[in-house]
Design a protein around this nucleic acid. Structure first.
Lengths: 166, 166
DNA sequence: TCACAACTTGCATAATTATTCTATATGATA
DNA sequence: TATCATATAGAATAATTATGCAAGTTGTGA
């Protein structure tokens, strides 16, 4: 999907710009983006900033500066959860299937695997995933209101290797 | 020093309002200020917010909320924690955070606390709350059909003291 | 393939926020 | 008290940001 790909890249670049220089309004951010080969309008940038939860904060010098939320800077070095050698069912880590329904996702696993997968998802603290409840072979996942199924899938794929090969 | 005195008071009240309710734009803040006996224009409020370093931050529900800077802003670039439905803070009783998604709420707790909190909610028999499912550190709450998030929050606050301070 | 749903984005503009300009007031100092 | 520097805040407006709408795209399923 071409569009999404470039959007992902754009969001990454926006985060880079935010963290590496002092941007005090959205127009000023269009220039660095242009240098990075990205052409968007202020409207799109406004939406991106909202999506990334980037805020315009008064600084100590009487100006305003856009800053990332705390979590994105600190934690969140997307580490993939190690699953493979711990369990049988090599290659899938117990994962069997995933389905979405509105703001819910249901993951089916081999018996006994739900808890550990749910744990990985929970400890990832992804803002898109509000939380999980796990039984023995089923995980109920509650997704945030403005998160698409596709986005939720991408996030979950960070924690479930089997999803990445789909 | 009449003017300064009332300004100081106003700034305190603004901080109170910011921490106790969800304000998403400056106009909306003029009403609570009025109730507190303070009459100012949006222009002055804008200056006050800048002075207090209060920022308008995108939250998890597709809205914007004004928030105070984190306490540790004693120096450099300030970081804002993203606005959850409620900030996880030094919550007592094991409570960590709450988020809403349509007819569901997810409460995160310290490990082992989910059950007891869920028990309190369940035994409260509030008609707005249909039921809960609790794991070890997560509670899934199903909310009735015509119950707003705000209303649900109020009801839950009856059982979760930590919610009442927001 | 076709129809339909979901996503993305620009344009235009609405909505919101910041600031300039001005007036008034306060505090300090001689 | 007179004078000056500083502070405060409203009105108007500039500047900035958010969003409704429409168009184009992509994904999905019959």
């Amino acid at each position: 999907m071409q569009v999404v790909k470039s959007k992902k890249r754009r969001l990454e670049i926006i985060k880079d710009i935010i963290t590496s220089q002092k941007i005090s309004n959205q127009s000023d951010m269009l220039q660095p983006l242009h240098k990075a080969g990205i052409e968007v309008t202020q409207a799109t940038l406004s939406r991106d900033l909202k999506y990334l939860k980037i805020a315009k904060v008064p600084d100590n010098n009487g100006n305003y500066i856009y800053t990332l939320p705390k979590e994105d800077n600190l934690g969140r070095t997307q580490q993939y959860s190690p699953v493979l050698d711990v369990h049988p069912q090599v290659g899938l880590g117990g994962f069997l299937s995933i389905d979405f329904s509105y703001n819910l996702a249901i993951i089916k696993t081999s018996p006994g695997f739900a808890g550990s997968i749910a744990y990985d998802i929970d400890t990832g603290n992804s803002p898109e995933i509000l939380g999980t409840v796990a039984g023995d072979d089923t995980i109920l996942i509650v997704i945030g209101e403005n998160v698409s199924h596709k986005r939720a899938y991408e996030v979950l794929a960070e924690y479930i290797p089997a999803l990445r090969s789909y």
